[in-house]
Amino acid sequence: MNTREALQQEVDKFPYWYHRIELPFGIVTPGWAPINAAAYGIPQSLHDKRILDIGAWDGYWTFEALKRGAAQVVAIDDFSDYLGTLDQSQRVAWKTFDFCRDALGYAIQRCPRIDMSVYDLNVERHGLFDTVFFFGTLYHLRYPLLALDKISSVCRGEIYVESAILDDFSPYHGGLGHGLKNSVAMEFYPENQYANNNSNWWVPTLACLAQMVRAAGFDDVTGWKLTENPNNLSMCRGFVKGRKTKSSY
């Protein structure tokens, strides 16, 4: 699209945007995530890294990694999360991702996308990655430890995880301000107990999330919260960075 008006018109045609992605002409897609990109702790330089972006959705972190110099970013998603509120017609699979990729001028080979489950990752088919982004996905999985093991099998360096955490909110213990802080624990939600979303299966505490990443083979692990005193459910998020050292191999 050669004009700002034409690009904006195309952005407006999509029924829902999850990510805020900066496009040419100063246009930003009307999503709400990430809440605070700096909080994810991603290095400013990802020069020559091969990266896996799990749960890519519109592609914010795929394109951000390319801006930071990544050699290639492979994006995967299975489009199973509807946030508890979206109609199926509002999730348009890879159409928003493809639109942004074209608008930003990236070649398909530099940021291919695959419609697949995280459980299907394997090194023979997908190769090894220097860095893995695993954002907003773990708590949607029925088998989060299996997913981390699968990720570890294709990662030779670092993993960055962002997840809902249990430290300051538990629907079973009184809601906001009544979490399980300082516990190595995880809650199971067989229906829609967490955020009225029946695709939310498990939420761990930050300490539990860190130990899960460690158990998957990342022996250098650090964790932090989005904010120390969250005032709403959307702020009850945590981050873990795990790194494989030479002793991990």
Rank of each mutant, 00 (worst) to 15 (best):
M1F: 11
R4S: 13
E5A: 14
L7C: 02
D12T: 05
R20N: 08
E22R: 09
F25K: 03
F25L: 03
A33Y: 15
A37H: 10
A39I: 06
A39G: 05
G41N: 01
I42P: 05
P43E: 05
L46E: 04
D48R: 05
L52D: 07
A56Q: 01
W57R: 14
W57I: 12
D58F: 07
T62C: 07
F63M: 06
A65G: 02
K67M: 10
R68S: 08
A71S: 15
V74I: 14
V74W: 00
F79N: 04
D81E: 10
D81M: 06
T85N: 07
D87I: 06
Q90Y: 02
A93F: 14
W94Y: 09
D98L: 14
C100P: 03
L104F: 02
Y106G: 04
A107I: 05
C111W: 02
M116K: 04
S117F: 06
V118W: 03
Y119Q: 05
R125F: 08
G127K: 00
F129H: 01
F133G: 07
F133H: 11
F134Q: 05
Y139M: 03
H140P: 04
L141W: 00
R142A: 14
R142V: 07
R142P: 10
P144I: 12
L145E: 15
A147D: 11
L148V: 10
D149P: 03
I159Y: 00
Y160F: 15
V161R: 02
E162H: 13
E162R: 12
S163K: 02
A164F: 09
L166M: 03
L166V: 02
P171N: 00
Y172W: 09
H173P: 01
G175T: 06
G177I: 06
E187F: 04
F188Q: 10
N192D: 15
Y194R: 00
N196P: 02
N196W: 05
N198E: 10
S199F: 10
V203H: 00
L206I: 13
C208V: 09
V213Q: 08
V213H: 08
A216R: 04
D219H: 13
D219S: 15
V221Q: 04
T222M: 13
G223S: 15
K225T: 11
K225W: 11
L226W: 07
N229D: 13
N232H: 11
C236E: 11
G238Q: 08
F239K: 08
T245S: 12
T245W: 00
S247L: 12
